[in-house]
Design a protein around this nucleic acid. Structure first.
Length: 594
RNA sequence: GCGGGUAUAGCUUAGUGGUAAAGCUCCAGCCUUCCAAGCUGGCUAUGUGGGUUCGAUUCCCACUACCCGCUCCA
């Protein structure tokens, strides 16, 4: 047997994975018999099992195994006011204009005025045969040399055209014309100079009507993320669950976005499933009052157990660590990468955000984002709903009561200095800061939040892509064939164990095999198969990632003596190793390895 | 959305302006004492809608979906 590594060609690799997913019932195109439906995918029998295993693993790790996190299962439809408060109505429904040259989009109300000469071409042609036959209008910026302008236009067109367009220097710009000279025009892309198209809305949220009359007054949205329901129900959960800050609320559910370009199989879909935790913590000032200090992160700090003196930074790193451990537990440990967003990347309300990325055939892409969002979300809902989202913290009140006025003022001054040092967003006015401290000293605050937010469909795709392996097997006669194996971690494998009678036409073997199958079936997903040769049945299970196979043979029936009676062959997917196990010990043996 | 490409069976591919081919898979039967064995038989396809034509899977147009690039961030 010779092993050859999988072909490095990423496109071919993805095509193989897509094909396998369909062939073996993991993932199908939605609405296929009607020609499909853009950007949505269905999970077949094995995909559904895989996804459920991942979902269950997440739920267990995030809530059942912990004392400080509770679950929530909120509706997809909510009062549209939630999406105003969250900012989604604004950021997801901007009027956008698209650059006709590079197709880059800018917000219609944010175009910087440009000055220069308006140039026009009737099209572009490449020796490769590629061409564009529409009018191309580009602004030659003030002071730009005509030759460097042409070079720039060719480069952008080559970029837009992709490989088909060929080398930029070989592109021929047709019928160059000077059209006009403009001053302070907002009709050209600030970077490319390309003419901007019509202003039109980009509604990234899926609109729907709640109520049968379907008037404009009934408009709401399918949620673009699950998190907002957690914030909106924060007070209910807090008051009904006997939880105290720090604690978390987690939720798994569908979310919807009108992605401009769904792509990379299920990676960017319009309907997808999110697994989100909102972990509520005390503001650093409260931690400082109670503990006298806020623990500072240092490389290698112990993150295994939360400490009372942790501020948002430590909590944030704690959750990155927790999530990393989770990915290790489902077999993705060695394909992860981390991207710490720079201050420039961060949204104005975010303090830090780490992307957990994973290697896919099409590149290294985000699986999960872990953001430290301060009090932005609950604060925003408090403001928009007019309902207090504060909690009362007895310990804080008692600790604050022991502070001297000077100590209190020092805390306020520290915060004011921090506000003034902000590079993004408006600093909070001093009066508001003082009002906030007044509430804080009485034990009241709006909790801050750490948000680990993962995509379940992405996770499933990552697990499949990671598990996918093919190699060439050559038998004694020199005949070779390509073998495909999904090396799923046993925890996530859709089928845990195959059960096979060695031969189909021996009723005793079949009967015994059915018996073993019925023994295992109540405990985990098993698959019984008596057709074809035993080797083929092993191969079939390898291809869907079943970690174990149990074969009932003549020794099971006692043919080779009583010591082997009622023992079966357990075959391991990854090593082909075979173990002789007593039927009475089989369930325990397997369970210890799942 | 813009540009490029693709669309034939469950999968991978062939082919033709005149009855659509193969391999694998799958199903049934026989056979088979551990890694896709063999034999026999069987099911299943030209993405959708128009047009040209006596006749279109083939030529033309439109649509849809998918893939690649621009974009993106669960």
């Amino acid at each position: 047997m010779s092993n050859t590594p999988a072909k490095p060609d990423p496109i071919a690799q993805m095509e193989k994975i897509v094909s396998l997913c369909k062939r073996r019932g993991f993932i199908y195109q939605s609405s296929e018999i009607y020609g499909g439906c853009g950007g949505v995918w269905d999970y077949g029998p094995l995909g559904a099992e895989l996804k459920r295993n991942l979902r269950d693993a997440w739920w267990r790790a995030m809530t059942r195994d912990r004392e400080d996190v509770v679950g929530l299962d909120a509706c997809i439809l909510m009062n549209p006011a939630i999406w105003k408060a969250s900012g989604h109505v604004d950021t997801f429904a901007d009027m956008m204009r698209e650059c006709t040259l590079t197709n880059k989009r800018v917000r219609a109300d944010h175009v910087e005025p440009q000055s220069g000469t308006v140039m026009q071409f009737s099209g572009v042609k490449s020796p490769s045969g590629w061409s564009i036959n529409r009018q191309i209008t580009v602004l030659m910026k003030q002071g730009e040399h005509i030759e460097s302008f042409r070079k720039r236009v060719r480069a952008m067109l080559a970029m837009t055209g992709g490989p088909a367009a060929g080398k930029p220097e070989e592109l021929e710009l047709l019928d160059e014309q000077k059209i006009d000279v403009v001053n302070g025009s907002v009709d050209f892309h600030p970077e490319s100079g390309g003419a901007l198209g019509e202003s039109r809305p980009f509604n990234l949220m899926l609109r729907t009507y709640l109520g049968p009359t379907a008037t404009e007054a009934d408009v709401t949205y399918l949620r673009p993320e699950t998190a907002q329901a957690i914030f909106a129900q924060f007070k209910n959960v807090y008051e009904s669950s006997r939880v105290k800050v720090p604690f978390g609320i987690c939720q798994i559910g569908k979310a919807f976005r009108n992605e401009v370009t769904p792509k990379n199989f299920t990676f960017r879909s319009r309907e997808f499933e999110q697994m989100e935790l909102e972990y509520f913590i005390k503001p650093d000032e409260a931690v400082e009052i109670i503990s006298g200090e806020v623990a500072q992160w240092t490389e290698g700090a112990d993150l295994s157990e939360p400490k009372a003196n942790w501020g948002w930074d430590m909590w944030h790193r704690y959750w990155v660590d927790q999530r990393t451990k989770f990915y290790q537990s489902i077999g993705l440990g060695d394909v992860l990468e981390y991207y710490w967003q720079t201050p420039a990347d961060l949204a104005h309300y975010a303090r830090a955000c780490v992307d957990i990325l994973c290697e896919f055939p099409f590149g290294t892409e985000e699986l999960e984002g872990i953001a430290a969002r301060g009090e932005f979300d609950l604060g925003s809902h408090q403001k928009h709903s007019g309902k207090s989202q504060e909690v009362f913290d007895e310990e804080l009140k008692l600790a604050a009561a022991k502070l001297t006025d000077e100590q209190k003022e020092a805390l306020i001054q520290k915060r004011l200095a921090a506000e003034n040092a902000k590079t993004k967003g408006e600093p909070m006015p001093e009066a508001d800061v003082r009002a906030w401290f007044d509430r804080l000293f009485k034990g009241n605050y709006v909790p801050h939040v750490i948000e680990p937010s993962a995509g379940l469909d992405r996770m499933a795709l990552a697990v499949i892509a990671k598990a996918y392996e093919e190699f060439t097997k050559t038998d004694e006669k020199g005949k070779s064939e390509t073998i495909t194996v999904l090396r799923f971690h046993p925890r996530v494998a859709p089928i845990k164990c195959g059960v096979f009678p060695l031969l189909k036409n021996k009723p005793e073997l079949v009967a015994k095999a059915r018996e073993v199958y019925n023994l295992l079936k109540p405990h985990f997903n098993c698959f019984y198969d008596e057709t074809a040769s035993i080797g083929r049945r092993y191969a079939r299970q390898d291809e869907v990632g079943t970690p174990f196979g149990v074969t009932i043979d003549f020794e099971t029936l006692g043919e080779k003596g009583p010591e082997l009676q009622d023992t079966v062959t357990v075959r391991e997917r990854d090593t082909n190793a075979q173990h002789r196990i007593k039927v009475s010990e089989l369930l325990g043996w397997l369970q210890a390895r799942l």
